[in-house]
Design a protein around this nucleic acid. Structure first.
Length: 310
DNA sequence: TAGGCGTGGCG
DNA sequence: TCGCCAAGCCT
């Protein structure tokens, strides 16, 4: 199956800017952004990001508020904060260069097993076992014969991935990237394109008659959750040109026109606040969300006013 | 270890 | 339309 996947990857890999000619920093930034966020939404933000902050050093000097604004609506803004913290560690402990070993990478804030392996492999050509959701799904189908991998990554999956990894470092990098791309483009979670799969003849899942998943993946509730309120609050803070008084949030939750509550804010802020309308949120929920943002370092509180961290 | 954490495209 | 789910990490 190796030659089929490698050939397919050579001929079908997407032309993404963090592939080919790209600095280790650019690859690291891409990996952080791509965690749980689709390529189409990452790419434009990544382009702007790299043009503005081409090295860890220049990025480390930026303020968290600017970092969070540039992160825009990629989601999970704590990733941006951790990337900023990582840049500072890179400057202070690694002379401004992205470290090359798995262990050093793993020690950086917000970098776990996947990202450490991916950067070591894709930025530095090392033989590391890269296991992401795409690779897990391809392995589950192609080798195990199941529709989906286990709910959580387990030791058996890691052992299988290590076992499958080609010995040659260069080939292992292509294998990691190729299997990941196969999972992203062909062996997708829903409606896999088995007809055009380069390894369909060797697929254990197809051989087994494409059995259905043995468990139902848990959905992620959204409407009415704290997460929705956090997201809306972050949108307000990103757009705000000055600190937002808690009463301004409150006014909107209670249905009072935000413009009459506080005229010192821009139309942009007002627009963002309107997202609270129809949310049917309870005031304690908003207070909880705002407190959570402060606790996570995503917001600062001073004189009952919230702002992005300076 | 299971749950929390954003956002929006797409089938 | 609306639920699924997308190159995870941390606690």
């Amino acid at each position: 199956m190796y030659q089929e996947v490698l050939k397919w990857f050579r001929e079908n890999a997407r032309d993404l800017p963090w592939r080919g000619q790209c600095s280790p920093w650019g690859i690291l930034v891409s990996e952080i952004m791509l965690a749980q966020t689709p390529v189409v939404r990452v790419q434009p933000v990544w382009e702007r990001w790299m043009a503005r902050w081409p090295t860890p050093s220049v990025f480390a000097q930026e303020s968290p508020a600017e970092v969070l604004r540039a992160w825009d609506r990629l989601g999970y803004p704590r990733r941006a904060l951790r990337l900023h913290a990582t840049a500072n560690v890179i400057v202070q402990k690694h002379g401004g260069d992205v470290p090359e070993t798995f262990e050093e990478l793993l020690a950086l804030p917000g970098i776990g097993n996947y990202t450490a392996a991916a950067v070591a492999a894709f930025a530095f050509g090392q033989r590391e076992t890269v296991v992401d959701t795409n690779i897990r799904r391809v392995h589950a189908r192609l080798v195990i014969g199941q529709a989906l991998p286990a709910p959580a990554l387990n030791a058996a999956e890691m052992a299988l991935a290590k076992d499958l990894l080609p010995v040659d470092p260069s080939e292992s990098v292509q294998w990691n990237a190729g299997v990941m791309e196969l999972g992203a483009l062909i062996c997708t979670a829903r409606n896999p394109k088995c007809e055009t799969c380069p390894v369909r003849d060797q697929c254990a899942w197809i051989a087994a008659g494409q059995p259905a998943p043995t468990y139902i993946p848990k959905g992620q509730p959204w409407a009415g959750t704290d997460r929705q309120v956090r997201g809306a609050a972050m949108a307000v803070l990103r757009a705000a040109k000055s600190p937002v008084h808690v009463d301004l949030f409150w006014a909107n939750v209670t249905g009072i026109d935000p413009e009459s509550a506080d005229t010192a804010h821009t139309a942009e802020v007002t627009s963002a606040l309107r997202k609270f309308h129809g949310l049917n949120t309870k005031a304690p929920q908003l207070q909880r969300a705002l407190a959570g943002l402060v606790a996570d370092g995503l917001a600062e509180l001073e004189n009952k006013s919230y702002s992005l961290p300076r």
